[in-house]
Design a protein around this nucleic acid. Structure first.
Lengths: 138, 138
DNA sequence: CAGTTCACTTGCATAATACAAGTGTTAGGA
DNA sequence: TCCTAACACTTGTATTATGCAAGTGAACTG
């Protein structure tokens, strides 16, 4: 577990993974403008490290070759349960923007939520994650 | 979730929580000698922050008043699912010391493992976590 | 009462992070 | 073609966090 923490043991790595996983972010610019306020050099560094550890891959976009698309690997999408538990914990114990009713449903439908996250990843569905018509991870 | 990461977004906080949760550590000295190599000032700082955020409480020991016993609060023990998922992820994707067969069983008996962790916490059982007679989180 | 244990602090060197500005490549429009 | 803008970064520098060694004070131990 300490090996894992050397990887995500910082404020940004897991946020980037979350944005890839549930918000459908793919480009450098999207991460930058996510509102969390990460600096450009730190973002570049974290993406590089996530790529080096096989959690993320970068592929240039066909149409606009300025753009790089970042995507989660299978190793990356396997972090979904960790993020889900972290979300549930945060919703229970910290003041959070997430509506409680939604969290309740996510907790009760853990497996369904995880299955939906994996389906979106397999299908490369770019839309942000929704559950019963509501946005998740606000 | 970003609030949570401001809390554990570092290499040490979750390791301390893990040592409290499954290894039965309680004193400053035990954390220091856990083999991970944390510095005294950092350990003191992390314990202070974990206490300030209500994840840990410190109570002086009755018998030997030099000693402080750190214990998880309910908020702290609720991190068990996060740690469990992190352990499972690490075992699957990173070379780890944990035997695969044990991890398999933990994955299949998720709820039982979590129930056992909570029972140990309620009963203040000081022994390291065991599952079917084997040590967990090696 | 001397020595040891325990839980820290303090001082200082090094590393990580934040902020601002700049660079190179690609795209789109006149 | 030339000009401007978008994109994905670098680079430089200030600030903050971390790591290491040594030290402190209170409490126990012989």
């Amino acid at each position: 577990m300490s090996i894992s923490l050397e990887l995500f043991g910082d404020r940004w790595s897991l946020l980037i993974v979350r944005d890839l996983m549930v918000r459908g972010f793919r480009t450098f610019k999207e991460f930058l403008e996510s509102g969390e306020g990460i600096a450009t050099n730190i973002l570049a560094d974290r993406l590089k490290k996530l790529e080096a550890s096989g959690i993320v891959v970068a592929e240039p976009e066909k149409v606009d070759r300025r753009k790089l698309n970042y995507r989660l690997t299978e190793k990356g999408i396997d972090l979904a349960p960790v993020l889900l538990e972290l979300l549930i914990w945060g919703a229970r114990h910290e003041k959070t923007a997430a509506p409680c009713a939604l969290i309740d449903r996510m907790e009760k439908n853990r497996e369904k939520v995880l299955a939906e996250i994996r389906r979106r990843w397999r299908d490369r569905d770019p839309a942000p994650l929704q559950i019963r018509g509501r946005w998740v991870w606000p």
